[in-house]
Amino acid sequence: MQILANIVVLTSLYALVASGYVLVYKVSRVLNLAHGELMILGAYLLVATSAGIASDPLVAIALTAMFSIVVGLSVYLLLMRKMTGQPVLAAVLTTVALGILLRGAMVLIWGPQQLNVGAMISFDNASIALTDSVRVSTAALWLVVCTFLVYLGLLAFLHMSRWGMRMRASGQNALLAAQRGINLHTVYALAWTLSTFSGSLAGVLVTLDSRIDVNMAVIGLKAFPAALVGGLDSLPGALIGAGVIAALEVLLIHYVNPLLSDVVPFLVLIAILIVRPWGLYGTKEELNRV
């Protein structure tokens, strides 16, 4: 049962990160390869707010959420907006450059050493007994709850709200959407903002569960197979892809060889790209067009 709990927690982490990839890709067809760095930036924003503005953990987390929205919006307005209308490859390469820039800046500002953010904001990451034999940490439990709420919120937003429908329409046919009066820049800005917010949330929660250093951006890379296996333009697909990758990782660690846990998700990724390149739940037509 503990193994199952580990799978659920890891699925939640990968799914929360993968949702950021999906949101931006679904709407703008851009693969944001700086998503891991944006995720860790969210965690470092928590360090900054807790050290300089708010000592109360809840206030610090709330402020971090606000700042992450500002970061997402700024990334779009200052950088990605200029890429609108340019080849997708140019936009993807821009995100690679952004990732490298953010990584360097974070080392310069917060140093290369790992930080115990939980201790800094007096967050008690207590072990919680779910049953006699299953325990998870407080932050891990929050991670599961937040992922559930984020997915619920995003699905409701995309399917039931006016702006959500505009986002989906822009993703399906940007030209037609623009001709129907949808402001593409607003839609794209919204997608980048929501994506950065969900990534930052994942960054904050994973940091509270352990610690932070710049190398934690690797989580973004590990969540990428999850997004692609599920289908890059499908939120439910990302959730299922995350489940597949997390289950594989945990089971390999437990029953086969831990060193394989790093490799096999990418083998699955390659296999999916060969057999079903649009992912388990992605749209075939969309990927062909890309």
Binding site: Q2, I3, N6, V9, L10, L13, A140, V206, S210, N215, M216, V218, I219, K222, E249, V250, I253, H254, P258, L259, S261, D262
Partner: peptide
């Protein structure tokens, strides 16, 4: 033995 770059050590600990 955790591979370099491991993000979550929970399963190893389990």
């Amino acid at each position: 033995i955790a591979p370099p770059g491991t993000a979550d050590y929970t399963s190893f600990a389990t």
